[in-house]
C-alpha cells in the first residue's frame, strides 16, 4: 500500500505561493484559513531558501496524541484525517503540531475557535467520497478521483512533490544525483567545509 508523502525541494521552490492559491481554490477554504503556506528563511539575503509546508501526515501524529476527543484517524494511504463533526475546537492539536498545520476559523463569540481545519492531502474526510457534504466540510477529494493534491500538481517548478513516498524519494534522489554544486546533506558544510 502506498504511503503518501509531501516533499518540498528547497532548491526549486521560488516562493510563488502558487501551492497556497491552488489549495485555497481546490478546497474552497474559508477566509482566514490557509492549509498551506510558504516560509522563506534569510529572506532577501544571499542564500535565502523557501519551503512550502502543510500537514505532513505524521506516522505518530502529535495532534492525534493530544486530541481530547480522539477525532484523528490515518487512512490506509497514510493520510491523517479528522472528523469535524466531533471536533470541539480546543486548539490542543495546534499547540502540539510542529508544523503549525491545524487552523481555526475565528467565527465564534470572543474569538473562540471553531472546528479545526487542516490539509487533507486532498483526500476529503469521513463523509461519502465526493459527496457535497464532504466538499463543504473538508474540501476536494482528489485522491478518490485518482488525482494527486492540487498544490503539488500546480507547482510550476515541481519543487513540491506529493504521492507515494517511495516514488517521491526516487524522483528526489535522481534530481540530487544530477544536480551540480555542493552536496546538500545536512551538516555537510560543517563536517567538510567547502566542498
Amino acid at each position: 500500500m502506498a504511503r503518501m508523502k509531501f516533499l518540498c525541494d528547497a532548491d526549486r521552490c521560488i516562493e510563488c505561493n502558487g501551492c497556497v492559491t491552488a489549495c485555497k481554490n481546490a478546497n474552497e477554504v474559508p477566509w482566514g484559513v490557509n492549509r498551506r503556506r510558504v516560509v522563506t528563511l534569510n529572506d532577501g539575503l544571499p542564500g535565502e531558501k523557501s519551503i512550502s509546508v502543510a500537514c505532513m501526515h505524521c506516522t505518530d501524529a502529535p495532534c492525534a496524541a493530544v486530541c481530547p476527543v480522539d477525532i484523528f484517524y490515518t487512512t490506509t494511504d497514510g493520510i491523517v484525517l479528522h472528523d469535524k463533526d466531533l471536533c470541539i475546537g480546543c486548539g490542543y492539536c495546534f499547540y502540539a503540531c510542529p508544523f503549525g498545520a491545524p487552523q481555526f476559523p475565528k467565527t465564534e463569540a470572543f474569538g473562540m475557535r471553531g472546528k479545526m481545519d487542516k490539509c487533507t492531502f486532498c483526500a476529503g474526510g469521513p463523509p461519502e467520497d465526493g459527496s457535497e457534504e464532504e466538499f463543504e466540510k473538508y474540501g476536494a477529494n482528489r485522491i478518490a478521483a485518482g488525482k494527486l493534491p492540487a498544490c503539488a500538481e500546480m507547482c510550476a517548478t515541481k519543487a513540491l512533490l506529493a504521492g507515494d513516498g517511495d516514488m517521491v524519494a526516487d524522483i528526489y534522489r535522481q534530481r540530487v544525483m544530477r544536480r551540480a554544486g555542493r552536496p546538500q546533506t545536512w551538516g555537510w558544510g560543517k563536517a567538510y567545509g567547502e566542498a
Binding site: 490557509n34 516560509v39 528563511l41 503549525g100 487552523q103 545536512w186
Partner: peptide
C-alpha cells in the same frame, strides 16, 4: 553551505517570512 545549513535553521525553529499571516506562520 546554504543548502545544508538551511535544514539546521529549520530544525532550530528559526523565524522566517511567510506571505500567509497567522499565529506561528513564520516558523517551519
Amino acid at each position: 553551505n546554504p543548502r545544508s545549513e538551511y535544514w539546521r535553521e529549520v530544525r532550530q525553529g528559526t523565524e522566517g517570512y511567510s506571505a500567509v499571516k497567522g499565529p506561528a506562520a513564520d516558523v517551519l
